[in-house]
């Protein structure tokens, strides 16, 4: 994949992300005070990082929060059209999700298709009582009727723009970036 002439605008720096993660954590805590979730499940790759950060942020109220990971590659609806076959990561849900309240994490929600795949996969593990969705960025442009329950940042974007979240754990620097194809 060649990326010709992308201009890049930083919409959130490292400190900004930290703040947004604190906000996201507290809004989750607020909403779940009476009925704490049984587990956080992150969608590979950066959804896992986000889930870990929120778990860390909520260590005090919920010291035993379980963490699961989900690789949705096998549930994608566009496998036929990908230039390459995705590498599979370990889907690891080492707990029973039957009847449990689950919060799903992804770094960005866009078309909603990833979340659709994640829900499908999750339900193959059992029947949770409730699944909620937390994202760092909602960039709009949904193609499916799926909405997040917890959003740290909403960006108004067009289909020609890319939102890139970079985490220290996965990337060399941290921040939320808006990429634009200037050739178009």
């Amino acid at each position: 994949m060649n990326q010709p002439e992308l201009t890049q605008e930083c919409v959130l720096d490292e400190a900004g992300i930290s703040g947004k993660i604190r906000e996201l954590a507290s809004s989750i805590l607020e909403a779940c005070r009476d009925d704490p979730p049984a587990a956080f499940i992150g969608i590979y790759t950066r959804g896992v990082t986000l889930a870990q950060r929120i778990q860390e942020a909520l260590k005090e109220p919920w010291p035993d929060m379980q963490l699961g990971t989900l690789d949705i590659s096998l549930y994608r609806d566009d496998l036929d059209n990908l230039g390459s076959t995705p590498v599979l990561r370990h889907t690891d849900i080492p707990f029973d999700i039957e009847g449990a309240r689950i919060i799903l994490f992804d770094e960005v929600i866009f078309t909603g298709r990833t979340i659709r795949a994640a829900l499908h996969e999750l339900i193959d593990f059992g029947r949770p009582s409730r699944i909620e969705l937390a994202v760092l960025v909602d960039r709009g442009n949904r193609e499916l009727p799926i909405q997040p329950d917890y959003v740290a940042l909403t960006l108004d974007t067009t289909m020609r723009e890319y939102v890139k979240v970079r985490f220290q754990e996965n990337d060399d620097k941290e921040g939320v970036f808006l990429l634009r194809d200037s050739s178009k």
């Binding site: 690789d71 096998l74 590498v87 599979l88 990561r89 370990h90 889907t91 996969e121 193959d124 593990f125």
Partner: peptide
């Protein structure tokens, strides 16, 4: 590497994926 995650499927109750 890819065979690993597939083998893990075998211990799930639903052993099937829609790929």
């Amino acid at each position: 590497k890819t065979a690993g995650p597939f083998k893990e499927l075998f211990s799930r109750s639903v052993k099937k994926v829609p790929a």
